[in-house]
């Protein structure tokens, strides 16, 4: 039996995912996630005892290069899509109250 998704779990997931759902959406999210987790539970029957977790298909290796600046000042381009900008900076709501 897989993990039961209760209200607390959904609350926690919403904090992690930075989403705010209303009660109805939470209920739906709980049901959906429960159904998907019940299904992926299948993995438990597979013996993965000796297997190493495989993240990179061609092996984990760093790709290093010299730290040489190749681009020009892109300040204007970077701020171009900002919903709000001021004095060449991203503008966000007050963070220290």
């Amino acid at each position: 039996m897989s993990k039961m998704i209760d209200e607390e779990t959904i609350e926690n997931v919403c904090i992690l995912a930075k989403l705010s759902l209303n009660e109805e959406e939470k209920k739906k999210a709980r049901e959906d996630m429960q159904r998907i987790l019940d299904y992926v539970e299948k993995l438990e029957e597979l013996d993965t005892g000796n297997a190493e977790p495989l993240s990179h298909i061609f092996g984990d290796k760093n790709v290093f290069r010299e730290d040489i600046v190749t681009n020009d000042d892109a300040r204007e381009a970077m701020l171009f899509n900002a919903p709000r900008a001021k004095e060449w900076q991203y503008q966000v709501p007050k963070t220290i109250l």
């Binding site: 992926v40 297997a51 495989l54």
Partner: peptide, 14 residues
């Protein structure tokens, strides 16, 4: 239980 298990499964599939 979920993410690491999936990565191990991926190793077996490969």
């Amino acid at each position: 239980a979920y993410y690491q298990k999936a990565l191990k499964t991926k190793a077996l599939i490969k």
